[in-house]
Design a protein around this nucleic acid. Structure first.
Lengths: 156, 156
DNA sequence: GCAATATATTTCAAGCTTAAAGTTTTATGT
DNA sequence: ACATAAAACTTTAAGCTTGAAATATATTGC
């Protein structure tokens, strides 16, 4: 839910609802800007970038299910994105001896080089887009969100 | 970009990158949970809910372009969602005398009743999902995100 | 060994999303 | 009036996303 300018009525629990709305609006705003820049400057997309970022940090490769879990998206979704990256020569699937159901997905050399370039620009963009958040606030916010995450992950 | 558990290397500007990653992971986690519950409990979707939430607060109706701007999504996107809501009888397009390019989009009575029910559940879910965030932290976080937003909106 | 079960992945249908191109209507300049 | 531009919206193509069904391989119980 992306309710906007108009205020959420006050009442018990409304502070959390308001927080959620702000959180979602902030991330959507930044996400939209990143998506646009990735398209314009590198002719790629955020999901492709996400997959490549995950693989960049796993030189040994990842299983499809690892990617899916890590990126918080469904299995079938990853299949399509990886398919397209493979057809573009940025990613490769390597058959495994042990288990013929699975394959290790890795960046190709080209993919790795490509990602390094894009990631550098990406980091600059984030610095720019979040430039008004002081380093101090950034650390404090990060801390709150981290504790939220660990609380969450202890769920169910 | 939804980088996860592994830490972002330290360096200048890395605090903001880390913040962005946490922000995105938090919102995606909550969003996924909301989407699933909306589907399971009310057989609807987050985009439909977003549109209805916007219309609920505008009894006089909204133009398509208002919806698009407000929800931070593209024009064409809104067209499709509203089309489906109309075909479900939850929303109506009212021709306007003044300008034949536009129409006012409103909730029908059924749509309004339906939204009220779902919104109540939604607010409860948010309270639950963000339950571990203290009201105090919630207000502080909201404040930071709000100032981020106003900074952002002064851009370009 | 072999049936039953579990795991890993892909396929599928439906819907969401965007950017770009197209349509219709309104506003503007002369 | 009338051509031109602007505005509001829809359509389209491509890609993303999910949940569910299908496929293929591995593991487990007997």
């Amino acid at each position: 839910m992306v309710a906007g300018p108009l205020p959420v009525p006050s009442g018990p629990g409304k502070d959390r609802l308001r927080l959620w709305i702000r959180l979602l609006r902030a991330s959507r705003t930044i996400e939209a800007e990143l998506r646009e820049r990735l398209k314009k400057e590198f002719d790629t997309t955020l999901p492709r970038f996400d997959v490549m970022a995950a693989l960049y940090r796993a030189p040994e490769g990842m299983l499809m299910s690892d990617l899916s879990r890590f990126l918080l998206v469904s299995n079938g979704n990853v299949t399509g994105i990886v398919d397209r990256l493979v057809s573009e020569g940025l990613v490769a699937r390597a058959r495994r001896n042990g288990d013929r159901r699975t394959s290790m997905v890795r960046l190709t050399d080209e993919g790795s080089k490509s990602f390094a370039t894009i990631a550098a620009a990406h980091e600059g963009w984030i610095g720019e887009l979040l430039g008004k958040v002081s380093e101090d606030d950034a650390r404090r916010l990060t801390g709150m969100l981290t504790s939220f995450r660990s609380n969450w992950e202890g769920r169910e």
